[in-house]
Design a protein around this nucleic acid. Sequence first.
DNA 1: AACCAGGTCGTGA
DNA 2: TCACGACATGGT
Length: 291
Amino acid sequence: MNVSCDGNIVTVDGVKDFRLSQILECGQCFHFDKLDDEVYEVIAFGRAVKMEQSGGVLRIYGSSMEDYEGIWRPYLDMDNDYGLIKESVIKADSALQTAVNEKDGIRILNQDFFETLISFIISQNKNIPQIKQCVKNISHRFGDEVIGYNGEAFYVFPDVDRLHEVTEDELRECKVGFRAPYIMNATEAVYSGNVTKEKLDALDIEQARELLMTIKGVGEKVANCVLLFGLGRREAFPVDVWMKRIMESMYFDGKDTKKLEIEAFAVKKFGNLGGYAQQYLFDYARTTLFK
DNA sequence: AACCAGGTCGTGA
DNA sequence: TCACGACATGGT
């Protein structure tokens, strides 16, 4: 993989196991716009860049080399060998072959903890387009403006300090509905220092999940999404309605099964590959199997 | 017009 | 512990 920078454009040549559309649209992140096939505006970590993939070449417009090294390389999980991960997932259970083949360009992003926390609190009982709209509403209203590569203005997700100044009514105006008090509670928990990335990083996954679940509006599923996407805990295995469906059909003879039981089964079966297995299955279930 | 969406909470058995 | 309705919003 060769990385170069020309002006404000970073070119990553030789990306493998990488499909931008799959990475962004598999339901793990919500702050991006599709501009064209394999061309996206991505807003994260206080930046707005245009990413474009053609074959094995990824271009990031509006990024310095420093931003690539400090932000986009870790964000895109570039130092992880997904060829090996996919091999291991299939070795854990060959029944995942179809899902992995279908979604062979997925990578798990390393997203900002606070944005991930709030985004997945919003996600409950909403579909993905609605979640994206709420995240955009909050960012547009309370986030800092940044100028994208083409000169267009974008709004980054507000940090804890900024969101802490916002009232519940202002949140409701962003169409988050009954989740507004949950967002208030989560923001207070992080702002006050009761629940921080530093604390969570120092705990084992069970204790970290417990701490996250002290936040009102954060249950088992949301906590697992935050662990997986916002804290790099790849052994987390979130079970939502889609995962419930596909896991029941694959492993429980189509019978109605508790989400906790499904999660326990998966943790045992996939171990520290659980998060990856979950994401291949989730996207496959949602876009192909049960479409 | 009911039903559903990357759920969680409070309540009552 | 477990089942179940409520909760905002928008799309089919």
